[in-house]
Design a protein around this nucleic acid. Structure first.
Length: 337
RNA sequence: AGGGGAGUAGCUCAAUUGGCAGAGCAACGGCCUCCAAAUCCGUAGGUUCAGGGUUCGAUUCCUUGCUCCCCUGCCA
């Protein structure tokens, strides 16, 4: 039943995304494109974390959440994630996640959870804090450990959560017997960290994109939107591009161009040194449009055949359940339930 | 747990005895600029925390609930 590539010796990688907001060019460069490039090297599981999206229930709209989850899955496939090679699934389709989260949560001291900076930050903003927001790391640990993942590709902001996953795995192993391997951070070789177009001092983010229209280029943006956003991007009072000591805004534009055009730094330097910022921006518009066009085209093809997406998600859920249920059965036996 | 205060646009706050819910900043668009910023011009933005009641009419008064802040108490 388990396909051959799933039982191979390749290292297991679990990636999760919350289906809130919309995927942007920073997600593509920083994460998606890297995953696609490394697809053969690992046994990849791509999870749409729709249970995590419930931690702030005031923001949840059922129909929108349902639709967003499918949209993200479709975009993943459109960006080149191959559902034959990798497992694409919805977190909510694998009941072992919350089950395992309960068991692991019992092994997590409150202090660990209260220390999480993401919790403190979100809790201070929310007017009502649900216990799910605090317990978030338990579910995340379950996500990762259910597949006994070797690697988790996370950004700096998620490092703390991965540490708690390791800590709880260790504590479980100590209490109930060595079972879980300790997952490690998967470093992205490219290291491209794309900043917001409207504010190059902060990382491009889904949440800011919802508040500031010109913050990020979304993967489904039309060419005229892409042009408007790039042309309005923050630069500085200088008049021409200097690669060496470019201001944050200009540096960000150059980085985008370099990454998306797959050219080396020397070539980019030769192309833009001494040119005006407007010239750089117009060139970048063309590159972005060219990169996104095939993705959007593939996305539309997928949407045109909803049955195909259903099949992909069903198939992904079946594969994920097979692995996660095995882990859950082992864990239940170890703790005696 | 008890007492007191608060909750209005994304943020900080207004709104006369109970009478069409506003301003600043942020956002968005335009002019300008190689592009951006700044200035200027313009646009949009709301279940007035939620439910019930009084009233012709409630942001305003009464009641219940929720959330936050301050004081006190309780627990170690």
């Amino acid at each position: 039943m388990v396909p051959t590539q799933l039982s191979s010796k390749r290292k297991t990688v679990l990636s999760g995304v919350q289906p809130t907001g919309t995927l942007h060019i920073g997600n593509y460069i920083g994460a998606l494109s890297v995953w696609v490039a490394n697809q053969q090297s690992y046994r990849n599981l791509f999870m749409i974390a729709n249970l995590h999206a419930l931690t702030i229930p005031e923001a949840v709209k059922a129909e929108s959440l349902r639709q967003k989850a499918r949209e993200v899955a479709a975009l993943y496939v459109a960006c080149g994630i191959d559902p034959e090679q990798s497992v694409v699934f919805l977190q909510s389709d694998v009941p072992a996640h919350p089950y395992l989260a309960w068991i692991l949560g019992c092994c997590i001291p409150l202090g660990w959870l209260e220390r999480m900076t993401q919790y403190k930050s979100k809790a201070s903003q929310a007017d009502t804090v649900g216990s799910g927001l605090l317990n978030y790391p338990a579910l995340q640990a379950a996500d990762i450990l259910a597949y006994r993942a070797d690697f988790v590709p996370v950004g700096d902001d998620q490092n703390q959560h991965l540490e708690i996953t390791r800590d709880v795995a260790q504590r479980f192993n100590h209490l109930f017997g060595e079972y879980f391997p300790l997952p490690e951070t998967l470093n992205r070789s490219s290291g491209a960290r794309i900043m917001g177009l409207d504010d190059p001092t902060v990382k491009m983010s889904k949440s800011l994109a919802e508040k500031h229209r010109n913050h990020a280029i979304m993967l489904l943006d039309k060419p005229n939107e892409i042009k408007r956003k790039i042309m309005s991007a923050t630069t500085d009072s200088g008049s021409e591009v200097h690669i060496e000591d470019a201001s944050p805004g200009v540096h960000n534009l150059l980085l985008l161009y370099e990454t998306l055009s797959a050219q080396d730094r020397a070539r980019v330097q030769a192309q833009f040194a001494g040119k005006g910022y407007g010239y750089l921006k117009k060139a970048l518009v063309d590159v972005v449009v060219a990169v996104l066009q095939p993705i959007q085209s593939a996305y539309n093809d997928i949407l045109a055949d909803p049955q195909r997406l259903d099949d992909i998600l069903q198939d992904g859920a079946a594969k994920a359940n097979t692995i996660a249920n095995k882990t859950l059965a082992d864990v239940r036996r170890l703790v005696g339930v």
